[in-house]
């Protein structure tokens, strides 16, 4: 508003002397040289702060002189600065959360190697992609010993891999390109938790959200629960099975632990389906033992405490229940 006093014609442009432009240019060149040289020193943790400081100085020169901001309307500087402030807000909160979200996991445990994993060597995709087929075939040839890098990590990855996000890919779950990716390990972790007190889940959309937190799977977690049957001796499993029958667990949970016992239909809270690995309050042996001893934390549930069964027997039942997971 304030500059209206002049007529239609010229408002005098603010012309900077040539020396400023060339001075800034040489400064930028020298700073570029410095930043390249410094990066070759291998400064480790200091490298990023130094590189960013140099970049900020360069940016300052460009904005201040090439873009005239130093000599222009103050409001322009304010607006420019505000964009930087909001960028800072965005970075600060997100980075803060990123750092504080979970305990640090070494990257080898979380990285996903597409060459070993399914999306990369998915037969569907390979059909129209010769170059990739070649890579996959080579990878396959190198076989069980794993190739060049990260062979050890691959096994862990394979376990972590098929957790939440795999809905789309799960369909093509034929034994994957490499034998080192044991499909059976992958299976049991997939089923989504069935709704508890809430009504039937419709289709996918709601499921998309709950997966998020689990989605950076800290690899070790699923592993121990994954191979249950092998861990327990046959004797205690047989005892557990007998106790399961004797204590009428089957009336609700069904003969094969599928949650389809005769009484199940009438219950407001549906019994757990052990065959699907649906241990509602945790899938470890201890968790199951706890529910058996104390009853379900859900008060609406018909799963009351079975504390009257002797301690040893309760452990046997728990082991048996864990072994039911297919």
């Amino acid at each position: 508003m304030s500059h209206h006093k002049d007529s239609h014609g010229s408002h005098e442009p603010h012309v900077l002397p040539l020396s400023i432009y060339f001075g800034v240019f040489f400064a930028l060149m020298i700073l570029t040289y410095i930043t390249v040289k410094v990066s070759q020193l291998g400064l480790g943790a200091l490298a990023i702060p130094i590189a960013m400081t140099v970049a900020l100085i360069k940016a300052g020169f460009v904005v201040g002189y090439f873009m005239h901001l130093r000599y222009d309307d103050r409001f322009l500087s304010l607006f420019f600065a505000s964009s930087i402030v909001f960028l800072g807000v965005f970075f600060a909160f997100t980075v803060y959360d990123l750092g504080a979200r979970d305990t640090w996991v070494p990257e080898e445990h979380t990285q996903v190697n597409l060459i070993d994993g399914k999306p990369f060597c998915d037969p569907e995709i390979l059909k129209n992609n010769d170059r990739r087929k070649k890579v996959c075939d080579e990878a396959k040839k190198r076989g069980d010993h794993g190739h060049g890098h990260g062979a050890h990590g691959n096994v862990v990855k394979a376990a972590a891999h098929p957790t939440p996000a795999k809905r789309g890919v799960a369909k093509v779950a034929q034994p994957a390109a490499r034998p080192a990716t044991p499909a059976p390990v992958a299976r049991p972790t997939t089923p989504a938790p069935a709704p508890v007190a809430r009504p039937t889940t419709p289709a996918p959309a709601p499921a998309a959200r709950p997966t998020a937190p689990a989605a950076r799977p800290t690899a070790p977690a699923p592993a121990p629960a994954a191979r249950p049957a092998a861990q327990f001796d046959a004797a205690s499993l047989a005892a557990g099975k007998k106790l399961y029958q004797a204590n009428a667990c089957w009336t609700c949970h069904g003969n094969e632990g599928k949650g389809d016992g005769a009484a199940a239909a009438a219950l407001p809270v549906k019994p757990a389906n052990f065959a699907l690995g649906n241990y509602k309050y945790g899938g470890s042996l201890g968790d199951i033992y706890k529910v058996l001893s104390n009853g379900s934390p859900n008060k609406a549930s018909g799963m009351v405490a079975y504390a009257h069964i002797p301690d040893n027997d309760r452990w046997s039942i728990a082991k048996y229940l864990l072994s039911l997971k297919k």
């Binding site: 965005f90 909160f93 997100t94 959360d97 990123l98 979200r101 979380t110 990285q111 996903v112 597409l114 994993g117 999306p119 891999h161 957790t163 939440p164 996000a165 795999k166 890919v169 997966t211 998020a212 937190p213 989605a215 950076r216 799977p217």
Partner: peptide, 23 residues
């Protein structure tokens, strides 16, 4: 393309997507 920024199957971080989206 599966660039792996948000999709955990590709190595990304889905909570990062939520930060971006809600910002």
């Amino acid at each position: 393309l599966g660039i792996g920024i948000f999709d955990p199957a590709m190595g990304g971080d889905p909570v990062l997507y939520q930060h971006f989206f809600w910002f």
